[in-house]
Computed example of a mutant assay.
Amino acid sequence: MRVGRMKTLVVALAALATMAGLSTPIAAAQPTRTTPLAAIEALPKPNATPVGALETLQAANDTLTKLGISPFLWPTAAPFCSDTGAPLGIVPAVAGAVPGPYTPILKSVPPVLGHDFNTVKSGEVLYGFVPVGIVNDSGDKSGMNVAWFNVNKFTGGIVPMGSLTDTVLKPITDEATALGLMNNPITKGLFVSAITPLTAALNSLPQAGVRAATVKTDKGLVLSAILGTAKSGTGTCFFLPTVGIQQVN
């Protein structure tokens, strides 16, 4: 790498580190559509509402909001999943998506020397899934899936979801490694400083049952559904499908 190019890269990474350090790690982004909580509150009320049901759903929705992820059209739930006394053992959950270019917490990171360090690139979508009531998923992050279809391109597929932290951080680290930034002590130090607030913010969010996936959908109108299973202790919870629509640019 040329000296001039290295100096420019160091300055750009320093600016990125400063931006990350000054950003509020879990600043709430405003949802762009009706929240799942509002949708549930608008439904006809039964004689008695399960204690804490709306509050726990709001907690899940808050996690999506902190990540800047817009909720899907309706929430979902897994019956016979909880032994906490909820009717039918129901565990509520919300899901959502955000198209790129985007990085949770930091929002959109500007290009550095023509390289996009965002977790989600243009033509990609980040999906998130947050249940409330799963306290131990035994480290097994498999089971939840994203089914998607691009209406404009007539393409689609099914993609497994995984750990929130791995989904968000791995693309950034892979990009830095591919560019050789991790081989130079100066650029490596700046890179680590830049993503430290992001790492800390992600680790502060609930992890049990939380899933994420980045999908290359290409540009266009994308219909999406999230469904599948999540471990809860020694049991398995099946979450009914929830659906969303994203305009990917």
Results as ranks from 00 to 15, higher is better:
residue 7 K to V: 14
residue 11 V to I: 14
residue 14 A to H: 04
residue 17 A to K: 02
residue 23 S to F: 01
residue 24 T to H: 12
residue 26 I to K: 04
residue 27 A to T: 10
residue 27 A to F: 11
residue 30 Q to N: 12
residue 32 T to C: 02
residue 32 T to Q: 13
residue 33 R to N: 15
residue 33 R to T: 13
residue 34 T to C: 00
residue 34 T to Q: 14
residue 35 T to E: 00
residue 35 T to W: 03
residue 37 L to A: 09
residue 38 A to F: 03
residue 44 P to W: 11
residue 47 N to F: 14
residue 50 P to R: 03
residue 52 G to K: 01
residue 54 L to N: 14
residue 56 T to P: 00
residue 58 Q to G: 15
residue 61 N to M: 03
residue 65 T to A: 12
residue 65 T to G: 02
residue 69 I to C: 00
residue 69 I to E: 00
residue 72 F to Y: 11
residue 72 F to V: 07
residue 72 F to E: 02
residue 79 P to R: 12
residue 81 C to S: 12
residue 81 C to L: 06
residue 84 T to V: 06
residue 86 A to V: 05
residue 88 L to G: 10
residue 88 L to Q: 15
residue 89 G to P: 13
residue 96 G to A: 06
residue 97 A to M: 14
residue 98 V to G: 03
residue 99 P to F: 05
residue 100 G to L: 11
residue 100 G to E: 12
residue 100 G to M: 11
residue 105 I to G: 03
residue 108 S to I: 09
residue 111 P to Y: 08
residue 112 V to N: 02
residue 112 V to M: 07
residue 112 V to C: 06
residue 113 L to T: 13
residue 116 D to F: 02
residue 117 F to S: 04
residue 118 N to Y: 04
residue 121 K to F: 04
residue 122 S to I: 07
residue 123 G to S: 11
residue 124 E to M: 13
residue 126 L to A: 13
residue 127 Y to D: 06
residue 128 G to A: 15
residue 130 V to Y: 09
residue 130 V to D: 08
residue 130 V to W: 06
residue 131 P to L: 02
residue 133 G to A: 03
residue 134 I to K: 01
residue 134 I to N: 01
residue 134 I to M: 03
residue 135 V to Y: 09
residue 135 V to E: 11
residue 138 S to N: 12
residue 138 S to V: 15
residue 140 D to N: 15
residue 141 K to V: 15
residue 141 K to F: 10
residue 147 A to Q: 15
residue 147 A to M: 06
residue 148 W to A: 01
residue 151 V to H: 04
residue 154 F to H: 15
residue 157 G to T: 14
residue 158 I to S: 14
residue 159 V to P: 00
residue 159 V to Y: 00
residue 165 T to F: 10
residue 167 T to N: 09
residue 171 P to C: 05
residue 171 P to G: 07
residue 171 P to Q: 05
residue 172 I to T: 06
residue 174 D to G: 02
residue 174 D to H: 03
residue 180 G to N: 09
residue 181 L to I: 10
residue 183 N to V: 04
residue 183 N to S: 15
residue 184 N to G: 06
residue 185 P to K: 05
residue 186 I to L: 14
residue 186 I to D: 11
residue 187 T to G: 07
residue 188 K to D: 14
residue 189 G to K: 02
residue 189 G to R: 01
residue 190 L to R: 05
residue 190 L to F: 11
residue 190 L to P: 07
residue 191 F to S: 07
residue 192 V to L: 14
residue 194 A to W: 07
residue 196 T to V: 09
residue 196 T to C: 02
residue 201 A to W: 07
residue 201 A to P: 13
residue 205 L to T: 13
residue 205 L to E: 12
residue 208 A to H: 08
residue 210 V to A: 07
residue 215 V to Y: 07
residue 218 D to H: 05
residue 219 K to W: 01
residue 220 G to D: 09
residue 220 G to C: 09
residue 224 S to E: 06
residue 225 A to M: 10
residue 228 G to D: 03
residue 230 A to W: 01
residue 231 K to Q: 13
residue 236 T to Y: 07
residue 238 F to R: 01
residue 239 F to T: 01
residue 240 L to P: 01
residue 242 T to M: 00
residue 242 T to C: 01
residue 243 V to Y: 09
residue 246 Q to P: 00
residue 246 Q to T: 15
residue 247 Q to K: 12
residue 248 V to D: 10
